[in-house]
Design a protein around this nucleic acid. Structure first.
Lengths: 338, 338
DNA sequence: CTGTTAGCGCTTTCAG
DNA sequence: CTGAAAGCGCTAACAG
């Protein structure tokens, strides 16, 4: 990029051959004589040549770059997703550009716009907690820009998705709590429109009804996932005439906020109130009590999402969207053992 | 990027003017008549024009993209650094590409190579725990590719750096522990060559000598920051004839590993052994006991590093490298209150 | 104030 | 097997 960058022209000049020959040799075109190719490769090496990917991109109209949009980076779950995506992308010769929406719908739209204008070849998107409408995604479809949704998805779009079986995960949690003798299990959910809120709610309800427990709507709350709201909701839950004996939090960060609040109130976990999260953050087992949770294969989700997107880029026509659903594992720790 | 992308040529054709006029109008060149510019802008809007940044990059030999290399993404500290960088970069019209070295020197070199070949305009780098040599950085200097080091730096290079006052931070920790009555304070450090290991060691020694405590070399250990090594070292520390009454861990993740191990052994914190970390991860205060630690302004570090790099890109000649050092705050919690 | 022209570095027909 | 030439979309002299 700096002055004096070596180009194929320099190689051609030195070798007294045409630049097209150099170009072909560099890319192992079969029509080049072995000897010529060797000469070119040697000279390229000697001059420390490195191709100008910008020029290549302009020429072939492909940047070999994937765009990623996540709600936040400072979350172990999304960071692991990204690792999975990156490793896969690099292995297959792609770079990534990452944006965070900070859980804002507007920012998410802007991120997508930025990435598209950077000419990424495809996108991997996990939606913000505010996102309930399609338009910006439909726009990508209209412009034939391939993308895959993961974890925070929206249903009904003809695109690939990668999720865990949220319903089953929540079902396992709720059933486990019932088996521990809990009768009034609160569900501290995320925003109503969010896919994972709905799916985990389904699992929660299924387990309750299976065990013959009538769901008390007063035990279900929708948080915007911030600490403040979470704590306000727990307070509200506790101040009811008939408080819960267990809380199922939509994810580990929320569960940690709950834990802090309960401790502050002198409420014992799990004796007074059992607690379960979702995600299995690495610190979950360092908490006191260690947090029961649902292990989500974050890295694997990223890997699968990236592979699916790259397959789509390799063969745009023969491609069929897939809905990939991974299994989860309930990790039982102290916080829910009555 | 898809077929039928609108170009300035399309606008020019529609308006029966030259493409250079369109180009100038789009970029608010002062030499264009207001009326013409309005027409162009209107048409661009109507056709839903979006500039091809790849072509722009090729032409002006700048990508308006910064490269970031961090040891890992799944760390709240680095994720916050990145947020600070990103916000700053976006505000100033730049995108970012992020790579993680996974604490590997080889991977770090490869990341830098990748980013450079992607033609980023500059780099922001936090070194891996293995990095003790210069060559790959010197290479950037030789090629006149601007970069800034942050947090995990290496001294002696004519480039800007952004760190916290590691020595002072460690000094505060050690003095605090002494004031709590601790006499045998172990320092569980990182790899020997690492900048932060050395600086924090300096602060540790300074506090000890100031208080007239003779440093016991047997109380200083160098971990590679993995859980396994950390736990092995703590075991070793405990199995000494004269075990420590406090442990100062190089960062919070290591402190958490220490905590897990001590708990497993039935050792009480802080009564038997006091514990302090470094970084102030958001979960630190949810631990039991809540972890004393040193608060590092991660977001701010990222912001300053990015601003410094961007200043450098704006004015390459008039630029002087700066060593920016931020202050830290000792956060005292239960884990160190005897 | 606007148009013409010449590339940025590379790939890819089309001709030999 | 290799070369000549066109062009990806855009910017920037240079000329009017």
């Amino acid at each position: 990029m700096k002055k004096g960058q070596v180009t194929i022209r320099d190689i051609a000049l030195k070798l007294n051959i045409s630049i097209s020959t150099v170009s072909r040799a560099l890319r192992n075109s079969p029509e080049i004589k072995l000897e010529t190719r060797k000469k070119v490769l040697a000279m390229a090496d000697k001059l420390n040549y490195s191709p100008n990917v910008v020029a290549q991109s302009l020429r072939v109209n492909k940047t070999k770059t994937l765009g990623i949009v996540v709600p936040e980076l400072a979350s172990h779950f999304f960071a692991s997703n990204i690792s999975g995506i990156q490793d896969t992308a690099y292995r297959r010769g792609y770079n990534v550009m990452i944006c965070q929406s900070n859980e804002s719908f507007e920012q998410e739209k802007s991120d997508i716009r930025t990435l598209v204008s950077s000419r990424v070849d495809g996108l991997l998107i996990s939606l913000s907690r505010e996102t309930v409408s399609y338009d910006h995604l439909q726009n990508l479809i209209d412009r034939e820009i391939p993308f895959v949704l993961f974890d925070r998805i929206l249903e009904g779009l003809p695109v690939s998705t990668v999720t865990v079986d949220d319903t089953l995960g929540a079902y396992k949690v709720t059933r486990h709590l019932i088996e521990q003798g809990c009768q009034r299990i609160a569900f501290l959910s995320g925003p109503e429109g969010m896919y994972i809120s709905q799916k985990r709610m389904d699992g929660y309800e299924k387990a309750l009804s299976e065990k013959g427990i009538i769901m008390d709507p007063g035990l279900v709350r929708h948080s915007d996932l911030t600490s403040e709201t979470t704590q306000a909701m727990v307070r509200d839950l506790l101040d009811q005439p008939n408080p819960p004996d267990a809380i199922f939090a939509i994810n580990d960060p929320v569960a940690i906020d709950v834990m802090k609040f309960l401790k502050g109130r002198g409420i014992r976990i799990p004796q007074d109130i059992a607690l379960v999260g979702f995600t299995n953050m690495p610190v979950s087992d360092a908490l006191e009590p260690a947090l029961s949770t649902v292990d989500q294969p974050a890295y694997e989700m990223g890997r699968l999402a990236a592979n699916n997107l790259l397959d789509q880029l390799m063969d745009p026509d023969g491609f069929e969207p897939k809905n990939i659903v991974l299994d989860t594992e309930l990790v039982i720790r102290k916080s829910s053992e009555k």
